[in-house]
Nucleic acid binder design. Structure first.
Lengths: 112, 112
DNA sequence: AAGCTTTGCTCCATAAATTGATCACAAATG
DNA sequence: CATTTGTGATCAATTTATGGAGCAAAGCTT
């Protein structure tokens, strides 16, 4: 039986979504754009933009990132080389890593 | 008439989701955890974790950020002070900004 | 190479997200 | 103060995401 998505959410996830929404809201206001304008350019409803800015955990990644794109927000762009470069870079690194994970020794090496 | 959500996606949104998925995948492999383990800890199915890592634009923000939380990924944490601090900070700034946007002069001041 | 594990993919049933419309309130304008 | 505009919230209708099971391909381990 297919189970619903009534997930317990961690505090981190909640606050991350909240922060993302605030970043988007600030960018929109800085551009002096209405929620309606952003919604039209992003191809979605005004209500959805509102929920994204509010930090609704149920909104899709595509919708949130699309709004960020419309506003020119460069998420994950920490070095200024552009998201394209970083995506390519990460992809190349990916080929060097093991494709699967064996439970074997089950040692978690924290790199934080 | 209710309309579908068959959105056209920008290249930026696509690549941002792709990069997020790769970051998550790398973090998971670094911890030597299986997709099944992550799914259990995040309270979701293995298939969903797979779609998130693949960069599926349809997955929810809550699901993606929850996986990031389980893996200890600190998204948006650029300064090391923690997501909590940044969220609070941004929220306070928010109170200083206008709550609505008037189309008035419609001048866009790019801050990028 | 054999054998076990992890992953990626499909299909389907169901819970949830998204939409468009509408309302009331807040806030900027004149 | 009156008017206009932006926003947030709600509701019904519909599309979509999610979970579960199963299968095939690929990856570790020995």
């Amino acid at each position: 039986m297919p189970k619903p998505a009534n997930r317990p959410t961690s505090r981190y996830a909640t606050e991350a979504a909240e922060l993302l929404g605030l970043l988007i809201r600030h960018a929109r206001i800085a551009r002096k754009m209405t929620a309606q304008e952003v919604a039209e350019r992003a191809g979605m409803s005004r209500g959805l933009v509102s929920r994204i800015e509010k930090g609704d955990l149920g909104t899709s990644i595509g919708a949130a990132f699309e709004v960020a794109a419309v506003l020119g927000l460069r998420l994950f762009d920490l070095d200024g080389r552009g998201i394209t470069f970083r995506a390519t870079e990460a992809r190349s690194v990916n080929t060097l890593l093991p494709q699967t994970v064996r439970a074997s020794s089950a040692q978690v090496d924290d790199d934080f």
